[in-house]
Structure formats: structure tokens, C-alpha cells
Design a protein around this nucleic acid. Structure first.
Length: 276
DNA sequence: GAGAGCCTGGCG
DNA sequence: CGCCAGGCTCTC
């Protein structure tokens, strides 16, 4: 569900609410959320630690705790994190994990489809989680340029859409912002990586940067049941050019937005603005 | 590369 | 009822 702008919005929501708070207890109510560890062992590590900071790498949230402790969260498709008053999960909210804080509030991890994951340990986690250790450059950083993109895809036969979704190529892009970035750059999603020249890579890298930055400014994209924090929603959905607009008019050329499947993911594009 | 699988829920 | 879903991993 959440891509880089949504995960970053969640980080900015959480930070002032839990920084300097101490974890009193940690409860894992669904064992699937903790793939690498028993709930009791994870709780044991967390009890009594203070949350010093939250950072983000791609779509991962990294909680830095006292005494080298660390929690890493991946929301996958439907994960949510929110802080509420109480000494346990609120009635009516199915929390897969609950972190009781020392101010009478708690942090709930909620996840309808249960794909989300929480890792608990020390700073070794950063290199132990394969998906995290092998992430490509973050498009919000200075390491993301057209020449870096070109160098990473110029020998790849995969469609550019798949390469943008590949987190080892670039971190943080998902299905919505891959489609929006390709439309911005005027590049057909099925173009092979090796077919993009240096100039197209410059354009695409800049589009990725601009789209993500704009989406973050609008606090992400919200539809279906996604919420940032407890009940807040983003508004970038009003600015989507192609995603979810199958059959509608392209805002640039008045052509009709088409939808195809690439590597099992729906892909939306304007055949006129993005010729093959 | 493409497809299945992991899960649950909303929508037509 | 079937289809779809903002992610990722594993197999053919």
C-alpha cells in the first residue's frame, strides 16, 4: 500500500508523538508480523528502551532505541502505525502489535492483509534484512541522478516499469508513482531498460524526484481505507495523471488512458504521450 | 521474464 | 460470485 511519500508521511506523523518515549511493554498479537523471532524474545528486548529517533530507508521505517536497540517496520500493502491513548489496543481496532509507552499512550501496528513485518534487534538488523541491505539509492537523496539510473538499467532487458518497482534499482517507488513518473517522462512502461538513452534517463530520474516530492507535499495518496496516523488522509490522489484513470481523458493530450498488465501489476499510461 | 503465493476486504 | 488492491518472494 504505502510507497515512499506515504511512509515518509507516517514517519513525520510518528516522530513528535513517540520520540523520547520509553517502551513499557510490547505485545505481538499476530505471530506472522514477526517473521524472524518469537514474540517473547522480541518483547524482552524492547521493554524499558527509549525511542530516540525514526528514520526511513526506501519503504522501511527504522526506530532507533536506547542501548543500540532497533525496530524495523515494513508496512507492505495495508500496514498502518498510529498512536492512541490507552493501556492496550483500542476496542474495535485489530492491532497485530502494540507498544505501550510511558505516557499512557500506545503505538498500534494494524495490518488488514497481514503482509507487514516487524523486525526487532540491534543495529545489525540494517545489514541482516536482505530487502533492506540491498536497497538501491533513495530518489530523495543526492545519489539519485540520471546517470546513476542509466548505469543501473542500460544492460537490463526488463521493462522500465518493472525496473522502477525493483527496490535494488531504486528504493521507495511502488505501482502508483512508477506509473506517474513514466507518464511525466513520456516513456512507455514496456520500453526495455536497455532502450533508454542517457537523456531519457535524465528526464525520468528528475520526474521520479519531482513526483515523489510533490506527493510528499500533499501527504501521499489516499483511497480505499488507507490512513496516515489515526484518521488523517493525503490528497495527492486528486493530482494523479494516469494511475486509476483507465478510460479517462489524459490531462495533457486528451487521449484515453489505457491499462495493461506488466509483471502482474496493473500499469496505466497514455498511448499518445508515452509512445512505444 | 512471467506467475503463483502470501492474506483480507471492498466493489461491481 | 469474480476481480481487484499502494509489496515482495519464490519458482518455473
Amino acid at each position: 500500500m504505502p510507497e515512499l511519500p506515504e511512509v515518509e508521511t507516517v514517519r513525520q506523523y510518528l516522530l513528535p508523538r513517540i520520540v523520547d518515549r520509553r517502551i513499557v511493554t510490547a505485545r505481538f498479537l499476530d505471530h506472522r508480523v514477526l517473521p524472524l523471532m518469537e514474540a517473547a524474545a522480541a518483547s524482552q528486548i524492547l521493554i524499558g528502551r527509549t525511542i530516540h529517533d525514526i528514520t526511513r530507508r526506501g519503504k522501511y521505517l527504522v526506530f532507533w532505541l536506547s542501548a543500540q536497540g532497533m525496530i524495523i517496520v515494513h508496512l507492505r500493502m495495508t500496514g498502518r502505525l498510529f498512536v492512541v491513548d490507552g493501556l492496550g489496543p483500542p476496542a474495535g481496532e485489530r492491532c497485530s502489535a502494540w507498544f505501550q509507552l510511558d505516557n499512557g499512550q500506545g503505538l498500534c501496528f494494524q495490518d488488514t492483509r497481514r503482509f507487514g513485518t516487524i523486525y526487532v534487534g540491534d543495529q545489525q538488523l540494517l545489514s541482516e534484512i536482505p530487502g533492506l541491505a540491498n536497497l538501491g539509492p533513495d530518489p530523495t537523496s543526492s545519489k539519485w541522478t540520471g546517470s546513476v539510473l542509466h548505469q543501473r538499467i542500460h544492460q537490463r532487458r526488463a521493462p522500465i516499469k518493472s525496473l522502477l518497482l525493483n527496490q535494488t534499482v531504486v528504493a521507495g517507488i511502488g505501482n502508483i508513482y512508477a506509473d506517474e513518473s513514466l507518464h511525466c517522462a513520456g516513456i512507455h512502461p514496456q520500453r526495455l531498460g536497455l532502450s533508454l538513452d542517457a537523456e531519457e534517463c535524465d528526464t525520468l530520474a528528475q520526474c521520479v524526484k519531482d513526483i515523489l516530492q510533490s506527493a510528499l507535499a500533499y501527504e501521499g495518496t489516499t483511497f480505499r481505507d488507507f490512513r496516515l496516523g489515526y484518521d488523517q488522509t493525503g490528497s495527492f490522489q486528486e493530482r494523479l495523471q494516469v494511475y486509476g484513470r483507465t478510460g479517462e481523458e489524459c490531462r495533457h493530450c486528451s487521449g484515453s488512458i489505457e491499462r495493461i498488465s506488466i509483471a502482474g501489476r496493473s500499469s496505466h499510461y497514455c498511448p499518445n504521450c508515452q509512445p512505444s
